[in-house]
Design a protein around this nucleic acid. Sequence first.
DNA 1: TAAAAAAATGCAAACGTTTGTATTATTAAA
DNA 2: TTTAATAATACAAACGTTTGCATTTTTTTA
Lengths: 344, 344
Amino acid sequence: MTFKKRRVKLEDIARKLNISIATVSRALDKNPRVKLSTQEKVFKTAEAMGYMPNQIAKSLSSGKTNIIGVIIPRYDEPFFIEVCRGIDHYAREHNYKILISSSRNSFEFERENLSSFEKGIVDGIILSPTHETETFVHIKSIIKKGIPVVLFDNIREEVRGADHVIIEDDKASFSAVEFLIKKGKKRISFIGGIREKKVFQDRFKGYLDAMKKYNIPVYDDLILHCESLDREYEDVEIQNFFNKITAPPDAVFTCTDNYGLLTMKNLLRLGYKIPEDISVIGFGDLGLGEVFVPSLTCIAQPSFEMGQKVAELLIDQFNEPNDVNHRKKVIKLKTELVLRDSTT
Amino acid sequence: MTFKKRRVKLEDIARKLNISIATVSRALDKNPRVKLSTQEKVFKTAEAMGYMPNQIAKSLSSGKTNIIGVIIPRYDEPFFIEVCRGIDHYAREHNYKILISSSRNSFEFERENLSSFEKGIVDGIILSPTHETETFVHIKSIIKKGIPVVLFDNIREEVRGADHVIIEDDKASFSAVEFLIKKGKKRISFIGGIREKKVFQDRFKGYLDAMKKYNIPVYDDLILHCESLDREYEDVEIQNFFNKITAPPDAVFTCTDNYGLLTMKNLLRLGYKIPEDISVIGFGDLGLGEVFVPSLTCIAQPSFEMGQKVAELLIDQFNEPNDVNHRKKVIKLKTELVLRDSTT
DNA sequence: TAAAAAAATGCAAACGTTTGTATTATTAAA
DNA sequence: TTTAATAATACAAACGTTTGCATTTTTTTA
């Protein structure tokens, strides 16, 4: 039975070579203050002894962990994963790793995660607030302590006060609905998510704005705000919605790709033809819509880029003089209506 | 212009209360060695001063970070995300966080990630090897240093030597193909992924085993091993494959849900009826298959459970006496054939 | 009310680095 | 050669905790 080996540390190398710890440390850093021949000896010995630096000790000493904390509302939403991929991409290029936490759509969890990050395990925090997040105080308190924070997606007015990256949800959905109207649609249905979530409020606003501008009547029974936070129940809700409808719409604008796909699925099963009978538009563009038959027309949201941008803002903060009152940066990314087969 | 505040530390509390750092530390731990009234004073003062423990210092002192390192081949594969969700779930219940890294399907990256974790930032490592991973030495070297490691999915023989969690890919695909055969299918097509990947080898083996057992001829032109590691090109490959086929199959067994969906998409566009003309089976069961019309029959792989189990094995290792030669644990999870509308 | 026992607190080393300054060794200048 | 300048290395404090042991204070016992 062999037990865990004691880690090799600088001291061990130093002792073996009969030099000081400081010199070993500097040698490994290729600090020109140490003779080349010594550097070589140190490197060889370190290698031979299987030395691995202790990142924790380094972090304590330097005050940097090179880890970025990321808090997303849920894992099972391709949008968030894609953003994380973008963050990871940018972060890695700049020698940072990411620690991902899910707030599970709960404000309480969000706060917990935040305060656990506050314990110094991360150099900065990227956060996408949950729909339950109505107050900014927990975030503000972090910022006040000098910890860099960047937010993305679902940013309420009350919550603006940190750098953040968003899209203009209202304008995006306006343009999608406008497109439908210009195609001659008269009975346009809206399917969104929980009303508490800012992005859904904005997307609904865009819908209403477009309908108003072109004087198209808005029918309450063609509007659905899904309440579910769970993939499974989304399906049920949408199914119920269409089962209840008496006079069908001629187009459906939905606030996520998943709603779009579920809408198509249910409509197809009820015997409607897409896009001949009913057009459908989604929101997101994360690959699934392209596979479906018919493929889903949707608003493409630049998720990966959003992640990259968010990471860039954060890392910029790392390098700025640490001014707590620094002017916050707001980045608005462009969306685009991608035409596919689910619309005429 | 306000600058980053100096963090409040134990010393500050100690000084303010005129007691020692040790007592403050113990008080915050609710150590019975310190008087209750002192504990209360300390708690109040800590709160008032906005004290937050320094996790890095704690980790250095305790030798524990309470972070689990997770290395997956890619982010844009729902299977891996679902496993991560499972890991996160179990880990969080046991007071661990997860640091996710993608090896981007590259052995080199895998090794880099591994050695970065080796620097002591994580207490243990969960890894799903890439298809390029043919050798076990990099993992073995980590284990020899006493760092707990658990593997999952895609475990080659050469790589067995650590705890791991897998499904029996060959048996799973055998049962799916057998199902098709029993339905009377005679021309069964196989669509898998890169040949280098163990899981695909096994799934192919299961296919061949079933075909052999029931004496069904195997036609080379009905077999496709996708080479692509990228969502986009998978589509192209499958499209090309079906465009080239002269005599169509009467069933297609595919090695991932995505291949299954892409197969259905392409077949539908070519005018085939599913399942009347051609049955299709996928592998994974991560939600998308249920939405598609027709919904996808597939082998359900318990991804979330796999994550939980993997995390459990790792955390078990944390608590075991640290025997480097400990008997490795292998967990095989059950799969299940879920019947939906894409098969007769 | 002194001694013993128990409770509360404090001291200082340890965790493994980094880094400013002091010291020693080497080379160059006189 | 001796001194000055430079190069190489060493010392020790610092990062913010934890914790074994020593010390002080309080309480109990006789």
